[in-house]
């Protein structure tokens, strides 16, 4: 257990360092800086800008300054002139290159709560509902209910998230104005985005649960439970479902990654002020520092969620523990 956690941690550190190094190298290797778009800058202004963002330093020094709270001053290694910039390790991703007077950290602090709220809401409705529907489908396998649920889950898996989002917007906000079109202030604003974001996850969980429960229903322990005289409901909900939940728990890691990814489009469609919107905009107008900041935060987040789901699964199922060889 502890070994597994340590292994995950090592993987996290290694991959974050690699992501950092590669992306930093790319940013500097590509010709043309972020200030190219504004035409006709005076060379002195350009030099000033370069000095302000330390673009005139050697690359290794810029990298060190970007990573850690080394406080490289203007007059050399650990200089005296205090620099506002504390480095990634101090959760400081530098100034945004496009939003003047904003640090990446400020933007993230304002926008991440929105994204997290949205993602948590989506997970909160989709996982329980998926489990419920999947178990129902397994309990009524072969009936019209199962067929209906199968059609629903297939649709949810096949249709991309942004199509579900625009269709639900079309139906529930324009054709039949139940919910507001955009914005993020009250619970009513959150219904449609959370629905669109959680739908693919719910359908996948439903499929996982259904096949797990069906598989368990043929095993000996379920026969024992039936033999003891338990009712059908108790057999399914208390015995067959319990071990069928393991793959669902293991799926929670990838699910949260998928939800973070999906929130990029959902935020765009519903005009939400979340980190996803900022990320897409930063990619469109080449705001390197903001893009890298969001990438790093999400990398660490996804890694931690994956590791957490793995650990939880191995905690719940002693068979999974230790190293898995495939």
């Amino acid at each position: 257990m502890i070994r597994a956690a340590l292994r995950h941690l090592a993987g996290l550190v290694i991959s974050v360092v690699i992501v950092l190094a590669v992306s930093f190298a790319l940013m500097h290797a590509v010709p043309g800086g972020p200030f190219d778009a504004e035409r006709g800058l005076h060379p002195e202004i350009e030099a000033n800008l370069a000095r302000a963002y330390h673009l005139d330093w050697p690359v290794w020094k810029q990298f060190l300054q970007y990573i850690g709270p080394f406080n490289l001053g203007p007059d050399g290694w650990l200089g005296t002139g205090a620099d506002r910039f504390g480095g990634v390790l101090a959760l400081d991703f530098g100034p945004s290159l496009r939003h003047r007077d904003y640090d990446v950290a400020d933007i993230l602090a304002a926008s991440l709560p929105v994204s997290f709220q949205l993602g948590a809401l989506a997970l909160a409705w989709s996982v329980p509902l998926g489990i419920l529907l999947g178990t129902l489908a397994a309990a009524r396998a072969g009936t019209w209910l199962d067929a209906l649920l199968r059609v629903l889950t297939t649709t949810g898996i096949v249709l991309p998230g942004f199509v579900i989002a625009s269709l639900s917007l079309l139906v529930f906000a324009f054709a039949w104005p139940l919910f507001p079109v955009a914005g993020w202030s009250s619970l009513r604003h959150m219904v449609l985005p959370a629905f669109a974001l959680g739908a693919p996850c719910a359908t996948y969980v439903a499929r996982l649960t259904r096949s797990g429960v069906l598989e368990n229903l043929q095993l000996d322990f379920v026969r024992t439970a039936k033999g003891k005289g338990l009712g059908r409901g108790a057999v399914i909900w208390r015995h067959a479902l319990r071990s069928a939940l393991l793959p669902v728990v293991a799926y929670l890691g990838p699910a949260s990654a998928a939800i973070l990814t999906g929130s990029l489009v959902v935020e765009k469609i519903f005009f939400l002020p979340g980190a996803g919107t900022h990320f897409v905009n930063s990619a469109l107008n080449r705001d390197y520092t903001l893009a890298l900041g969001v990438t790093l935060v999400y990398t660490v987040l996804v890694f931690c969620l994956n590791a957490l789901a793995d650990l939880l699964a191995s905690f719940l199922d002693p068979r999974v523990g230790g190293r898995q060889e495939s």
Partner: peptide, 22 residues
């Protein structure tokens, strides 16, 4: 492969397109 699989590739790809795509 394990390590790569747990990276959020969508974000990395978008970052890559940010840097290289102009």
């Amino acid at each position: 492969v394990d390590v790569l699989q747990s990276l959020p590739f969508v974000f990395l790809v978008i970052f890559l397109l940010t840097v290289l795509g102009a």
